[in-house]
């Protein structure tokens, strides 16, 4: 194509997709923070930001970004140097990788992996590693507590999450994201697998560190969690990863349960964004409604309720599929 030999063409394709995903994540953080402020404002019968970028305050988060960019990058003496310095890159990289297998439209997928569903689960497990590195490297008790809570929470929500995704894979008969979307051409899976959707959504709230499962960064207990010692751009990467993981889990949920980019009239990417941000909005709505649970409550809930439920869901799905 265009006189460029094939191997180079795929390199260009990869670079363009990578740039697109990173820019999307950056823009998403700006938009999502703005949305969060607006939604929280409306729930408390305020109107949220409105002065910078009148009348809806659209420039407020952009101003915040500039503030972050000019802040000093502080590293305390007693930190574990390389662990501390490398930690912010990992959660962000994990989220970027996650978007590699998310379809934006017909044939609009960065990497058409055959086992896209498993890939998503695998790369998200890196995120906790980065948070742990941050917590350990900071040499700060709050950071370490936050990291420890992250690890503890992760082993309890990851399993139900994988099983919920597996139920979708069984229903679709494939682990390929494109196939999953195509299998929903008539009915979105949320109607066929409502239990799996609920399990996935609850687990994804924990994954994205959202209230009611935000004890990993509980402001009122741990000040900020694992990223407490970070400032400036390094902190911004954690922030990007946090909102990236919110939009990432929402995008996966939209793809797996709401039919992805499928929808009438509007083009695929538009539908995909609408569904994704609908779920992002729901997460914000939940955040400003529910208080934080305790860490042991999530562990209990994950192991003693979500996991059996997910297993039962898989068993029922298997039996129904075998009978059909």
């Amino acid at each position: 194509m265009f006189g460029i030999p094939e191997p180079w063409w795929s390199v260009i394709r990869a670079v363009v997709w990578a740039l697109f995903i990173i820019i999307f994540l950056a823009v998403n953080a700006i938009v999502a923070v703005w949305l969060e402020r607006k939604v929280s404002g409306r729930i408390q019968r305020r109107i949220g930001p409105q002065r910078v970028g009148r009348p809806i305050g659209w420039a407020q988060t952009i101003a915040d970004v500039f503030k972050l960019l000019v802040k000093e990058d502080v590293r305390a003496e007693a930190t574990d140097k390389w662990v501390f310095l490398l930690a912010p890159a990992i959660p962000f990289a994990a989220i970027t990788l996650m978007f590699l297998v998310v379809p934006w439209g017909k044939n609009l997928i960065p990497l058409n992996l055959n086992i896209g569903l498993l890939f998503v689960v695998a790369v998200t497990s890196f995120e906790v590693l980065g948070l742990f590195m941050a917590g350990w490297g900071s040499n700060n008790k709050w950071a370490l507590l936050g990291a420890m809570r992250t690890a503890a929470a992760m082993i309890s929500y990851e399993l139900p999450m994988v099983l919920a995704i597996l139920a979708v894979g069984m229903t679709a008969g494939s682990l390929n994201m494109n196939d999953v979307v195509n299998a929903q051409s008539r009915v979105p899976f949320i109607l066929i697998q409502p239990v799996a959707f609920l399990i996935y959504y609850i687990a994804s709230l924990a994954e994205a560190n959202r209230t009611p499962f935000d004890f990993t960064e509980a402001e009122s207990e741990l000040v900020a969690g694992a990223n407490i010692e970070y400032s400036g751009l390094r902190w911004a990467f954690f922030f990007l990863a946090e909102y990236g993981s919110l939009v990432g889990t929402s995008a996966i949920a939209a793809t797996l349960f709401l039919g992805g980019w499928r929808g009438p009239i509007l083009p695929g990417p538009v539908w995909f964004l609408i569904k994704t941000y609908l779920l992002v909005y729901v997460a914000m709505w939940i955040r400003w409604t529910l208080p934080r649970v305790r860490i042991d409550q999530l562990l209990d809930f994950g192991w003693k309720f979500l996991l059996p439920l997910a297993l039962a869901d898989i068993a029922v799905t298997g039996i129904v599929l075998a009978l059909l």
């Binding site: 992996l113 055959n114 086992i115 498993l118 890939f119 689960v121 695998a122 790369v123 497990s125 890196f126 906790v128 590693l129 742990f132 370490l144 990291a147 420890m148 690890a151 503890a152 992760m154 082993i155 990851e158």
Partner: peptide, 25 residues
């Protein structure tokens, strides 16, 4: 690919996390 992803999922996602968890406990 399948093996690679399972390797990451099981070993990095689960085993290392458990090791870290054990260290912190």
């Amino acid at each position: 690919e399948f093996l690679a992803i399972i390797q990451v999922l099981i070993y990095v996602g689960a085993i290392v996390t458990i090791i870290i968890f054990a260290i912190m406990l």
